[in-house]
Design a protein around this nucleic acid. Structure first.
Length: 574
RNA sequence: CGGGGAGUAGCGCAGUCCGGUAGCGCAUUCGCUUUGGGAGCGAAGGGUCGCAGGUUCAAAUCCUGUCUCCCCGACCA
């Protein structure tokens, strides 16, 4: 490809509506252009990067006997009603109606369609197992699209679905896909981690996320050498802090004390000259039970900790995400304003974080404005509905093998999920076993955000000057800067190299624009293809060209005859 | 949806408080000079100031409404 044929113009300045370096660089380099919030046109370089990554994904999947198909993007309402997700997903679905008033949605994912596709093909246990995948555009009407391709409304995703006889076989499929994903992301040449993720209603360890590590990643991860989890779900195995002062061991009678104007743990900590972790705070939530009933609940935890609503939902098996009560609701439930609330005398269920177990007694609010109370003993002074892991893990907590958590940030680019019969049951995907008995097919689903991954790679691999593409997904491997396009001999030198690289099937890009060398160098650094060749009249006179490696900045001059072998050596090495 | 910010030339911005002929830098076009890390000088083109109402002799500027975009939260590949 030659620059003059692309219609690409780079931007010198950072666009005002970008917040991430990767987003800004992709826009500046003409890789992507926003059409509307969350909708992007992929320019010629972007398309090539996407195709490179898709190639890796296909290769690894095909190698392990997964088979590619392609499903429609427009999907009829009926199958979504059948799976129960027409209402559940609701606003996420881009719904539409055709001329006959039939309702459709744009596919945000394809469990429904694939179930429809396979159910007629699966009859006997002999027909299983197998695994299908597609690479396709998805549409999700995201609440808040942001960061360019990181959270776009329209994006390219690889989604795979496995179909197995039973749970045991399905777990094998799950593990296989997990290892395929490891192979895929290993080939990108950027650091990644597999982390424990939300396993939803299934339970167990059957959902993992693949994260590319990057400072601006949306997710916080806690990792040790042997364990990694998303902060959202990370269990607390061993607390970072198991120490507390004498006051927490007291077994004396309740004692109220005046705390005028003290409404925060920080202030109370100052007032009592006790660390925040020695105090006990309470949070009030509105929770919807599996019966559908809404109920207020209270949660106690150490003053230094933060309540994790996801854990509350999961550990209490709630139907929806709990929400915090408003100040006036809290007043109604506790009799006091926030800042003076505690468990004593409450009529709603009170749960306690496991880190409070070693405490004999608590210092909490007295449910009377401007008063707190000490020597509060569970079961003596209030009824405990349950104890559990309800707080966010934090740096310093320890993993299952006692290693201390480190915090890092990541971008979720892949997710493997064991589904069981979650969809196959509703969508009636069944087979007859050896005894002729009907059995539900066990499914797994596996996603990779193709476009997100490409941006994540950029986020992970760039410098002040621009992108540094890893060879695996680089739109082009070699970027020829023709420095004196007006000089016939130089032009021929560049053209010859261009043609010989094409002949060798090396992806090569020729900057043949009528621009000054400085402009071309800056743009080459911005676009970030792995190798650059400077072809100019100065060195050209002596028959020399300069090879520059983008990542290291290393440069060396070669004769026209040597440079081809040198490039091929470098390209094949990577 | 709640909270914050912004819409003025292709891009980045000033002008708005305090109404009075639409500005700057980069980019673009032409000319001359320059030519290995975003060249210099000279000239030129390009904007219904997001949109719709209103106030006024006069609106980018004041008022009302509306649309869009970005950031922080709930969602996710």
């Amino acid at each position: 490809m030659k620059w003059s044929e692309t219609g690409i113009k780079t931007l010198r300045e950072v666009p005002a509506d970008t917040a991430l370096p990767s987003h800004a660089l992709l826009v500046r380099g003409g890789f992507i252009k926003k059409l509307s919030s969350g909708l992007f046109t992929y320019g010629p370089f972007m398309v090539r990067a996407i195709q490179k990554f898709e190639g890796i994904v296909r290769e690894e999947l095909n190698k392990r006997n997964c088979v590619e198909i392609l499903m429609p993007m427009v999907q009829p309402k009926e199958i979504w009603v059948q799976s129960g997700r027409w209402e559940l997903y609701d606003d996420l679905l881009q719904k539409m109606t055709n001329r006959s008033d039939q309702e459709f949605c744009l596919g945000p994912t394809h469990e429904e369609v694939i179930s429809d596709y396979v159910k007629n093909n699966i009859q006997s246990y002999r027909d299983l197992p197998f695994c299908l995948y597609q690479i396709q555009t998805k549409f999700r009407d995201e609440i808040r699209p942001r960061f360019g391709l990181m959270r776009a409304r329209e994006f390219i995703m690889k989604d795979a679905y496995s179909f197995d006889l039973d749970e045991e076989q399905a777990k094998v499929s799950y593990e296989k896909m997990r290892s395929i994903y490891e192979a895929i992301f290993s080939r990108l040449g950027v650091p990644f981690r597999v982390v424990k993720a939300d396993s939803g209603e299934i339970g167990g360890d059957q959902s993992e996320e693949f994260h590319i590590l990057a400072d601006h990643g949306e997710d916080e991860l806690f990792v040790t050498d042997s364990f990694a989890a998303n902060k959202e779900v990370c269990p607390v195995f061993i607390s970072h802090d198991t120490s507390f002062s004498e006051s927490a061991l007291s077994k004396k009678p309740l004692e109220e004390f005046h705390t005028p104007g003290i409404k925060t743990i920080a202030k109370l900590s100052q007032f009592l000259k006790l660390p925040e972790g020695d105090l006990v705070k309470i949070l009030f939530l509105s929770c919807s039970l599996s019966s559908g009933e809404k109920k207020s609940m209270a949660f106690l935890l150490r003053g230094s900790d933060e309540l994790n609503l996801y854990k509350v939902k999961k550990n209490l098996n709630l139907k929806e995400n709990p929400t915090l009560l408003t100040d006036s609701e809290i007043k109604k439930v506790s009799g006091a304003h926030p800042g003076s609330c505690g468990p004593v005398g409450l009529s709603i269920p009170v749960y306690m974080d496991q880190d409070l177990k070693p405490f004999s007694s608590f210092i909490t609010g007295a449910n009377k404005d401007d008063y707190h109370i000490r020597n509060v003993i569970p079961e003596r002074d209030f009824k405990l509905a349950g104890i559990g892991d309800f707080r966010y893990a934090r740096e310093g907590d320890k993993g299952p093998e006692g290693q201390t958590f480190r915090s890092c940030r990541g971008i979720e680019v892949g997710h493997v999920f064991y589904l069981g019969d979650k969809y196959s049951e509703k969508m009636d995907v069944v087979y007859l076993d050896k005894k002729g008995k009907k059995q539900t097919v066990k499914m797994g689903c596996y996603g990779i955000g193709i476009t997100r991954t490409v941006q994540a790679v950029v986020e992970q691999s760039h410098d002040k000057e621009g992108i540094i593409w890893p060879v695996a997904v680089a739109p082009f491997l070699v970027h020829i800067c023709l420095l004196d396009p007006g000089d016939q001999k130089t032009k021929e030198l560049a053209d010859n190299l261009y043609q010989s690289l094409l002949k060798e099937k090396v992806d090569v890009f020729l900057d043949d624009r009528n621009e000054k060398p400085g402009v071309k160098f800056k743009d080459a650094d911005l676009l970030g293809f792995p190798f650059r060749v400077n072809v100019g009249a100065r060195d050209g006179e002596k028959g020399l060209m300069e090879l520059v490696e983008r990542r290291t900045g290393k440069r060396k001059k070669f004769s026209a005859s040597e440079i081809l072998t040198e490039i091929l050596k470098n390209v094949n090495k990577k």
